[in-house]
């Protein structure tokens, strides 16, 4: 019999979620979203530094991303054909 544990968790989780969401709504957490966008920038200590990607670095990074995409696509196609 495992349902009591799940039911307890679901009820506690749901209550916590609803209470928190209700508090957020009531305390205006969803207002003034434009200002919220800038919060991490307060106390920024320095101007931004920039540097360029080298050509080799760009190719290697793109190559790695392509490998990731290809291997994921291959797994999907292969599994759908075989599974």
């Amino acid at each position: 019999m495992y349902f009591p544990y799940f039911v307890t968790y679901i009820v506690v989780g749901l209550l916590l979620g609803l209470i928190t969401f209700g508090w957020a709504l009531h305390s205006g957490q969803f207002r003034d979203q434009q200002r919220a966008r800038f919060l991490p920038l307060v106390r920024s200590e320095t101007p931004a530094a920039t540097s360029k990607f080298g050509r080799l670095e760009t190719y290697v990074l793109m190559g790695m991303a392509c490998i990731g995409l290809l291997i994921s696509a291959f797994t999907l196609i292969y599994s759908l054909l075989r599974g």
């Binding site: 969401f21 957490q29 969803f30 979203q33 434009q34 919220a36 966008r37 800038f38 991490p40 920038l41 920024s44 101007p47 931004a48």
Partner: peptide
């Protein structure tokens, strides 16, 4: 990530509303 990326870019978050949609 939501803290470091805007700070490194010195750019405000694209959309805080969207970030809350993602969170919930």
């Amino acid at each position: 990530a939501y803290y470091v990326i805007p700070r490194v870019c010195r750019s405000p978050l694209y959309s805080h509303t969207l970030s809350l949609v993602g969170f919930w």
